[in-house]
Design a protein around this nucleic acid. Sequence first.
DNA 1: TTGAAAGCGTTACCAG
DNA 2: CTGGTAACGCTTTCAA
Lengths: 343, 343
Amino acid sequence: MAKRPNRATISDVAQAAGVSISSVSNAINGKTAAMTEETLQRIQAAMRELDYRPSSVARGLAMQRTATLGLVVTEIETPLFLQAVTPIEREARQAGYSLLLVNARNEEDEREAVNLLLEKQVDGMMVISTSDPRQNDHLHKVQAEGTPVALINRADVSPEFDQINWDNMTGVKDLVRHFAGLGHRRIAILVGPVNRRSTQERLQGYRAGLEASLLPFDEDLVRPGDYTATPEDWKNSIEELLALASPPTAIIASDDIVAAVVIRALQEMGKSIPGDVAVAGIDDQPFSQYLGLTTMQLPVAEAGRQAINLLLERIHHPEKQAKHILLPCPLVIRDTCGGNKAG
Amino acid sequence: MAKRPNRATISDVAQAAGVSISSVSNAINGKTAAMTEETLQRIQAAMRELDYRPSSVARGLAMQRTATLGLVVTEIETPLFLQAVTPIEREARQAGYSLLLVNARNEEDEREAVNLLLEKQVDGMMVISTSDPRQNDHLHKVQAEGTPVALINRADVSPEFDQINWDNMTGVKDLVRHFAGLGHRRIAILVGPVNRRSTQERLQGYRAGLEASLLPFDEDLVRPGDYTATPEDWKNSIEELLALASPPTAIIASDDIVAAVVIRALQEMGKSIPGDVAVAGIDDQPFSQYLGLTTMQLPVAEAGRQAINLLLERIHHPEKQAKHILLPCPLVIRDTCGGNKAG
DNA sequence: TTGAAAGCGTTACCAG
DNA sequence: CTGGTAACGCTTTCAA
């Protein structure tokens, strides 16, 4: 726990350059308008000489802003949300901010995480999580204390937060209509945890799609699952589905990984894809393109980009109203749904 | 850019509790041994009352340590290294540290990133990157200034840094021997960028494996590629490989994604896997298990875990010598190599 | 155009 | 056992 060897401070630089601390400070912060060329030169030389690096900690204390943003990510089964991290970090840094990353494993952990970020005095924070219903009172308090918050995939009803959400509803509706357009009349859907808002929206989209295609809704074709369901569970679901008197010719999986499992299961059962059964996923994970998987894209990176931009906007203009953005989930048509070149 | 409404400070608490600032500070930091129960109670009550949260910025300035660690990740094509982030964050937080995440897009960017972390006065930093040959002089300077550095996948020769590397050599050797043991005599390998150290090691492992299996080395079976090679490029490679007078019966892909492409290409050519051609990947990405892909695992999460533990160790005991750890890359035998239940 | 000095919120040392 | 007070490194205001 040894203290680090003292690095050069602003006063060292001032002394070396033979000027006052304020002048060095001004030089650092580009308030160079009213400064002799010579002084500036001397200061810069001294800084280089001493390998001076300003302390953002001290600066943070003095200015009451840290140039740091917080990102809280709920740890989920698939590393899906991690895809938002890279673009967020990029935009943050471009705007002169650093990123403090915190993982939250559950709701209580999230509170702790938020608290931590508050102690670190971040200038703003983003929270990305699954769409389970949650309490957001701690986040309201954060905003009340003056730290802007942007939410991804939370669908909080209050207009107070900047928010990005995905249009699961329309996405799945489009998917169903696409299948219907391909001639499918029995379209099954595997869904995740029912309490999750995304699940609800997808089911709505499913029904809406059927309706728009003049297809009847059949309870038997909806298989509830869970993100913790094992591959075995999903395989069983598939078998039951295919054992139906009138089995589905198309299956929408709850995510791309489940889709991959479904495809394997079907192949093991000797079914051809999409010949016997068409399949689509949800997510558009990186590997999906290599599977030729048709899927509904969840634009995670885009969500991150938009979230941080909203956040930055509001940090700079706290008086402006928060915005809610509903991101479209485009269909990515590849091979597993048929009708494509690879048919 | 409005200033945030002033939050309660330590002196507010002191005033409210009718004690001195020092006492509050002591209470916060658990130096509660020599304190009246009553004073403590009063202080705690005041803290709760005012919703007091200590400022880590101020504390950082006073203590010259920020309880923050930096993580520099080179942005790579596949999000492979992101798998290290979650475990690193977890361990960091458990140890009382926060994580500042910085993405570096290239070498120059890395310098900038490191500088940023230095300004933020992190107590230590980790760098994870591809194994291209690099200059590490800036990192040497960081350590010289007293900030410990741990490296993942850099294979720097100097003993000065804590380091985690993967034993690509042995891993690929094992893979080759596994194939040989299955009766394969023509084993092809697709490799990434040749200047990358991992590529070199894998080629060494490849040769060593052949030798150990008494198999001849055949230049034709080594297909150099590039992480930027398109799926088309890899398909062409496969076609050329299969057009050989004596075509391979087993293929080791340069990573799991390439393996997925290879598998698709083979399937499109009407080959069965592993019946006609066995395939293995390198990485063990999350999706690989759903493909039934046999692969050489790159224990990324484990590398992260070990790196941060080394780093923490050295932060607390700067006098101790840095350690180098070579992490084994175990084979994950699944279906695509044959010989397994799924044959 | 430059400099002195007062904060920023904590910790840590040293008297009382 | 408690309370002053001097750092910590920087920004900012106000004089000169």
